[in-house]
Simulated scan of single mutants.
Amino acid sequence: MPLYVYSIIAAAHPCRLDGLTGVGTEPAPVRAVTAGRLRAVVSDVDEEIRPRRRDLAVHQEVQDRLMTDGTVLPLQFGYTAPDDQAVTQVLLEHEDGYLEALERLRGCAEYQVKASQDEDALLREILHESDRARQLNDRIRGGDPDPRLPLELGELVAAEVGERREGLAAGLVQSLVPLARDHSVRAPADGDILNISLLVHDDDKNAFLEAEARLTEQVEDVEFRFNGPLPPYSFV
């Protein structure tokens, strides 16, 4: 019977799954398939699993339960296998790699940091600090009909915005990365200037949270969105 696979853990993990039911319209109990020194946490399914709200929540609930008791290699939502035998074969074939990953992630969780910048404040800053931008803006506002002025101003401002956002994002990354065991920077979306995931060990958790708080207080005109601790999806 097809299986939905949530995560991989060590065979020694307590794996407390009592009361958990899995994804799908007819949820089956969440259980473990053990092979050698590893376990895969799974549930039986008889349908194609789509990212519906309940199923996404169930997927995360399983990871959270397992993380309470030990290290987890969380799989992204939607991973399935044909049957128990296929899962067992994968665990045995890749045992050393999975055990190495579990050791690398031991005691760690993922924290996500996203940031966006107040665009109006940035434009005001550029007009204040760039003589050329200020001159062009003053001429346009004064009624100069030269059609080249708006184009030049737009190109100048766009270049300044890109350069300043990249510089700010680089500075933010440099302030956070020293407190993490690993990090993954992704392309920002939806107007953000920063999208970074960090792998933080429990021993460094308090220092990392204090650094987050300092950023919020010290960096003006930037809105931060912090998320974590999370299963270390980005580092599996």
Score class of each variant (00 low, 15 high):
147 P>H: 08
176 L>M: 11
107 G>T: 03
127 L>A: 13
172 L>S: 10
108 C>Y: 00
67 M>F: 09
166 E>M: 07
128 H>C: 13
184 S>Y: 12
192 D>M: 07
114 K>V: 03
123 L>M: 09
103 E>T: 09
120 D>R: 10
139 R>K: 12
73 L>N: 01
144 D>Q: 07
193 I>R: 02
152 E>H: 07
153 L>T: 01
155 E>R: 15
164 R>Y: 05
148 R>A: 12
149 L>H: 01
106 R>N: 09
115 A>L: 05
165 R>T: 05
145 P>W: 05
178 P>L: 11
101 A>Y: 04
91 L>T: 05
82 P>R: 13
87 V>F: 13
82 P>M: 10
75 L>A: 03
92 L>V: 07
109 A>P: 00
157 V>W: 07
137 N>G: 08
190 D>R: 06
185 V>K: 07
96 D>I: 05
173 V>Q: 14
174 Q>L: 08
109 A>Q: 02
189 A>R: 11
74 P>T: 06
157 V>N: 02
79 Y>T: 07
119 E>I: 03
193 I>D: 00
96 D>T: 11
141 R>K: 14
140 I>E: 06
95 E>M: 04
81 A>S: 13
205 K>I: 03
161 V>I: 12
108 C>I: 02
202 D>S: 11
135 Q>A: 13
127 L>E: 14
203 D>S: 14
109 A>C: 08
148 R>L: 09
72 V>T: 07
162 G>E: 15
164 R>M: 08
172 L>Q: 07
105 L>T: 02
120 D>V: 00
134 R>G: 05
108 C>G: 01
66 L>F: 10
134 R>E: 09
104 R>E: 15
133 A>W: 15
63 Q>W: 06
108 C>H: 10
170 A>V: 08
121 A>T: 09
119 E>D: 09
132 R>H: 15
174 Q>I: 04
191 G>E: 01
205 K>R: 15
81 A>E: 14
125 E>L: 10
68 T>K: 09
144 D>H: 03
126 I>Q: 02
202 D>N: 09
190 D>W: 00
169 A>Y: 06
92 L>N: 11
117 Q>H: 12
190 D>N: 11
176 L>V: 02
128 H>A: 15
198 L>Y: 02
65 R>M: 10
166 E>V: 05
194 L>T: 03
178 P>W: 09
89 Q>L: 11
195 N>A: 11
189 A>Q: 15
122 L>Q: 14
92 L>D: 13
151 L>D: 12
191 G>P: 03
95 E>R: 02
196 I>F: 04
85 Q>S: 13
122 L>T: 04
189 A>L: 08
130 S>P: 08
89 Q>P: 02
160 E>D: 15
95 E>F: 01
180 A>K: 03
73 L>P: 01
165 R>Y: 05
100 E>A: 13
97 G>W: 11
190 D>A: 07
148 R>Y: 08
134 R>M: 06
139 R>A: 13
71 T>E: 01
91 L>E: 06
165 R>D: 11
141 R>M: 14
90 V>Q: 12
201 H>M: 05
